[in-house]
Amino acid sequence: MSKVFSEEQRDCLQELINVAMGLASDKLARFLNTFVHLQVPAIELVSSAQIPAEFETRYSSTDSALVSQGFLGNDGLRGEAIVLYQLENAHRIAALLGYETDSISELEMLTDISSILTTTFLNGLATQIDNSLSYSAPRVLSSRQGNVAQALLETAYHWELALKVDISYQLIDHSFNCDMLLLIPGEAVVNIQQILTRILEEY
């Protein structure tokens, strides 16, 4: 990412993401009725072709799930948000929330958490850049129903770039990790650079 963005632009993007993540964490904490230790999410912009290989090891060895949701905003802002979970992690959260452990409510829970993470996060990001987003219905796939790695491969194929956001939530008695990927079109880099430059010029 250092090649794509200047150090000032990278700092700006990181701060926008930190603020958006703060909003998502607050929402998650209220939803789970607990306190969430917020860590600065590591971000990286990579070619989406790298994504399947990078995540295959982490998500094919254990039961996992993928939730994807398309987003569309003004000025051609569009993409697809993906949240990847290891189901073992998700079960701990399910227990906290009192969800039954049958597979239907498990999918329901994953959709709820993903929706909090992605829509709150993306709305927070959009507000900061004076944009607003609409979303498609989330699509959920658990490794019990299909091949998560294959679904990731097929989804990533439609896009050129991926903004990786490593999310690690530490709850008081539980730890919970997931990965969020924002798949975006290649020309988005120029848009992002323009947005960051505009924000930096304001200050």
Binding site: V19, G22, L23, A29
Partner: peptide, 25 residues
């Protein structure tokens, strides 16, 4: 001035003597 806006965090910083808590941005 923080992005971590959870009520419990606001309570904690007030207890530690902070005058005020402002959300980012």
């Amino acid at each position: 001035i923080s992005a971590d806006i959870q009520p419990e965090m606001q309570k904690r910083v007030t207890e530690l003597g902070a005058l005020a808590f402002i959300h980012k941005p």
